[in-house]
Write a protein that binds this DNA or RNA. Structure first.
Length: 905
RNA sequence: GGGUGGUUAGCUCAGUUGGUCUAGAGCGUCUGGUUUACACCCAGAAGGUCACUGGUUCGACUCCAGUACCACCCACCA
């Protein structure tokens, strides 16, 4: 016999091991079945899984288990990401703290540091693997990938080379975000802003007053810019020159007029520093101005600063202000000025714009033919598209569907503002740029290719690639056969053609991830994959929201008290309960809040199902039935089923229908609720209670088996554990079972309606008892007066008596005031109990009259709609059909109302 | 400055193209309960003018416009 409460801790690991050993996670590329693929967003190999990962795993596991049960060849490919900057900075910090080495890069050197990082990564991969298992994820471990795998590196190099040859990758001097702490560039999307209070100074600059919070960048300033329409500076012309006293003596300055200046801000004019500011850089490009570097890559001032050369920014700032003040050039200081400082998203260091030679991807160059392969789902072939245009095209055409669709807008807006993507990083951890340089006495040579070129003296470019470059290839580079990675006679196209997994499983079906990395990752996958493979990376993008605390705050690692750690929750409540608590009540794209009571609630539900199953097993035992020997067929043919049985089987068909449709449409929250309430409110609270009178083990077992199948994607562990108790002998494990199909023969709306009447009667008796302060123990005698339901209620006499706790029950076939109502007499008190509708004749009449009126109006509305030719011709067929159905049902209702009004006189 | 989402019971949230919603659930609260599984339970109850103002409609929580507040995203801040 099963224990009284479900024990997740004693169950889950055992079940997971059983699944894994059964081979049920493995997908077969040679199968004829329709494929369904999910690429797991690879967690960063830097540490622990958090709730964000848990949501992702739960959602994807539901998709994949459902697809598998539907008979599809389902592949869920797991993996981890090397997370370039994030990982390198974590390890460097660790070494600094643990080994007291202030500058690990300099002390250890490239090779040793990479070795250390690789060691760290492999440890953290082990933790991640075990954590992913804890969630019950049914992913194919035999295909696990890592973004730094050899075969993935091959793909990276192939794509880089291809892009370079197509002129989509170029090298150039451009302003980039420089992180002096990590000594690397950072992409625009990896920057966040922090508010900071810093003094804002106004200086006298010749005849002008200029404002700045960064005096240390002002050495090279020889341009002063103002708006062309600013009346205050009317007398100055673009290009005018003047001489003025500045930090280190007299300088020659030029006047520039440009519309980017905000006349309202400060004095309406400013000096510019093109080397260290994005806007200034653009402005300088437009007006062809000189650019000069003031701050070096360590964050110290250069010789241009004279006496300040070599000073770090912060120190120099105050000293420069002092000097200008002495010179009488400081006009005012605003100590309370708040401005936003750019900070690296990964390394958390302040970002300093710098001009540097970097590698870029040109997103506007029109050289792409799309779709490039016959397998792609796109429309007609178009030529000369840019990367940007392809990215827009695949979403606009509907080839890629984004859920929720409003994120499509966000996506387009982002693409509109997209600038060339800087892909080189000056860190060591990552895919090294496949470029080799050779310097002779009089010539510089460069080789771009998949492999190191022949001959001596070639040195590989020291830079690595942005981590999103390789993750952009994730959906397909993971499907390339690793055995082909070393065969350099193969082209990129050959690699794709010769990899069975790619042929079978790409494009993938769903990309499920948080909306916060729509730009970082989803957009980049679309860009890289369409270009490299000619296929879209995925058909559907499902974006989940963030999980927040009860108060709506973000769960942050820095504040552990605010965090719910999946690893603490799982042993306490079980992975199934955690999964439910994150899925139900969560709609895609919207944040949701999670707290322990909510998880406890779903733990209770899991336990409820557990006990319902125990009850079924006990009942079977009492009846001498072995649940393993129950055949589903018996249920279908049996005509001697009780009303409750017929109603339940019919309701079950509705559930199968709703759940299947809901899952196909990715409405996971609704489906979860539907199952929850069916199991608890209907199956347990009514059916099991009714069955205590007359149990039909065939039906009990059949229904429980179906329930367990339907719930399995949400709660894989309990359901599998229960399945072992109730499955027929030869059927095998639950996760390999096929999805239940609706059996139309079992649909029986009449039984459902009739059972509802019985339920209403029982409920009425219960509420009368409560209303009259009669406790549960008191035995009651009840007389039901009814006109139409005598036979029905008579047949359910036992149930009504038992569940209403009655000592006696009389059912009288008398004509009551009007149909569909019954009255009851309790202990001499007459109590009217509606079965449906009210009993007070006047009230009833008034209500019916009102209903009639509104129905007539409704009818008029629909008639006018259907009579409108424009509506008929323009509306889709199903909409018109819907209206016609409405018309029909309204007419029927109206007839019923009329009939009842007649009865009432 | 541009954009997106939210505002429904004390709390957390559902509500599928406007019409069985006379607005639901879970938690919490209150009352009662040793019922052939389950106190991680059972039976009941209280609690909402669906943020506000207009509009469209025979009919609006649902569609449109505007207002207020909250949250987030993008851009800019010399």
């Amino acid at each position: 016999m099963l224990p009284k409460a479900y024990d997740p801790q004693g169950t889950e690991d055992r079940i997971y091991k059983m699944w894994e050993e059964s081979g049920a996670f493995k997908a077969d590329a040679s199968s004829d079945k329709e494929s369904f693929t999910v690429s797991m967003p690879p967690p960063n190999a830097t540490g622990q899984l958090h709730l964000g990962h848990a949501v992702m795993l739960a959602l994807e596991d539901i998709f994949i288990r459902f697809a598998r049960a539907q008979g599809k060849e389902a592949l869920w490919l797991p993996g981890t990401d090397h997370a370039a900057i994030a990982t390198e900075s974590v390890v460097i910090k660790k070494i600094q703290e643990e080994e007291k080495i202030p500058d690990p890069r300099a002390s250890l050197g490239r090779e040793e540091l990479i070795k250390r990082i690789a060691h760290f990564v492999s440890e953290s991969q082990d933790t991640i693997r075990s954590q992913v298992r804890k969630m019950g994820s049914s992913c194919d471990w035999s295909r696990e990938r890592y973004t730094m795998d050899k075969s993935l590196n091959r793909c990276v190099n192939e794509v880089f080379t291809k892009m370079y040859k197509d002129g989509l990758i170029y090298r150039g001097h451009r302003i980039v975000n420089w992180d002096p702490k990590m000594q690397t560039t950072v992409s625009d999307d990896e920057i966040e802003y922090r508010e900071e209070k810093a003094p804002f100074y106004t200086f006298q600059y010749g005849p002008f007053q200029i404002g700045t919070s960064r005096p240390e960048t002002k050495f090279g300033d020889k341009y002063v810019v103002m708006h062309p329409d600013d009346p205050r500076y009317e007398k100055y012309e673009n290009g005018d020159q003047f001489e003025c006293e500045w930090i280190n003596g007299k300088i020659k300055a030029n006047i520039i007029k440009d519309k980017v200046i905000d006349m309202e801000f400060g004095t309406g004019c400013m000096t510019i520093t093109p080397w260290h500011d994005h806007v200034d850089f653009d402005l300088a490009e437009r007006h062809e101005l000189d650019k000069e570097q003031i701050i070096d890559f360590e964050g110290k001032l250069l010789p241009i600063a004279d006496e300040f050369a070599g000073m770090p920014i912060e120190e120099a700032r105050t000293k420069i202000v002092e000097k200008l003040d002495k010179k009488g050039l400081l006009v005012s200081t605003d100590e309370d000025y708040v401005h936003r400082v750019a900070v690296s998203y990964r390394g958390k260091g302040k970002v300093e714009p710098q001009i540097k030679e970097q590698w870029f991807i040109d997103v506007n160059k029109p050289v792409i033919e799309w779709p490039s392969s016959a397998k792609a789902t796109g429309g007609k072939k178009k030529k000369n598209m840019s990367l940007k245009e392809v990215m827009q095209d695949v979403v606009r055409s509907g080839d890629i569907k984004i859920i929720p669709d409003r994120f499509g807008k966000v996506y387009f807006h982002w693409i509109d503002n997209l600038r060339d993507w800087c892909i080189s990083r000056q860190i060591w951890w990552g895919h090294r740029i496949p470029v080799w340089h050779k310097e002779d006495k009089d010539s510089k040579k460069m080789h771009v290719g998949v492999q190191e070129p022949e001959g001596d003296g070639w040195k590989q470019d020291p830079d690595t690639l942005d981590t999103w470059f390789s993750s952009g290839l994730w959906t397909w580079s993971t499907l390339i056969d690793p055995d082909l990675a070393d065969d350099h006679s193969l082209s990129l196209q050959d690699l794709l053609d010769k990899s069975p997994d790619f042929q079978k499983f790409h494009p993938t079906s769903v990309m499920e991830t948080g909306y916060d990395i729509l730009f970082f990752w989803v957009a980049r996958m679309i860009l890289m994959t369409t270009y490299a493979t000619g296929q879209i990376p995925f058909e559907t993008v499902y974006l989940h929201g963030l999980i927040r605390t009860r108060d709506g705050a973000k769960m942050s690692k820095s504040d552990p008290s605010s965090c719910i750690d999946p690893l603490e929750i799982i042993p306490k409540y079980g992975a199934d309960a955690l999964r439910l608590s994150m899925i139900v009540g969560q709609s895609p794209g919207n944040d949701s809040r999670l707290f322990e009571e909510k998880i406890a609630g779903y733990r209770n539900f899991v336990n409820k199902l557990w006990n319902a199953s125990r009850f079924v097993l006990m009942t079977c035992e009492n009846e001498g039935v072995d649940p393993h020997e129950v055949e589903s067929l018996k249920v279908e043919k049996s005509k001697s089923l009780s009303l409750a049985d017929r109603a339940l089987l019919s309701a079950l068909q509705d559930v199968i229908e709703d759940v299947t449709k809901g899952l196909e449409e990715y409405r996971l929250s609704e489906v979860g609720e539907r199952l929850y309430s069916f199991i608890w409110d209907y199956f347990c609270d009514w059916y099991l209670e009714l069955s205590k009178g007359q149990a039909n083990c065939d039906v009990l077992v059949h229904v429980l088996r179906t329930i367990v199948k339907l719930l399995h994607p949400y709660c894989p562990f309990v359901t599998e554990e229960l399945w072992a108790q109730i499955s027929s002998d030869d059927s095998g494990i639950l996760m390999k079972q096929l999805w239940p199909e609706v059996d139309k023969k079992l649909k029986d709306q009449k039984s459902q309606d009739e059972l509802q009447i019985v339920i209403d009667v029982i409920t009425a008796i219960r509420s009368i008892r409560a209303d009259n302060g009669l406790d549960q123990g008191a035995k009651l005698e009840v007389i039901i007066h009814t006109k139409d339901h005598v036979d029905l209620l008579e047949s359910q006499r036992d149930h009504i008596m038992r569940m209403g706790r009655l000592s006696d029950l009389k059912i009288d076939a008398v004509s009551v005031q009007h149909e569909n109502a019954a009255s009851m007499f309790l202990k001499g008190i007459e109590v009217h109990v509606p079965l449906e509708g009210a009993i007070d004749v006047d009230k009833e009449k008034a209500k019916l009259a009102k209903e009639k009126e509104s129905l007539e109006k409704f009818l008029k509305g629909i008639n006018s709609k259907l009579g409108n030719e424009r509506f008929i011709s323009s509306a889709p067929e199903d909409v018109v059909k819907l209206e016609r159905d409405k018309l029909k049902s309204v007419k029927e209702k109206l007839e019923k109302v009329d009939e009842r009004l007649k009865v009432l006189g």
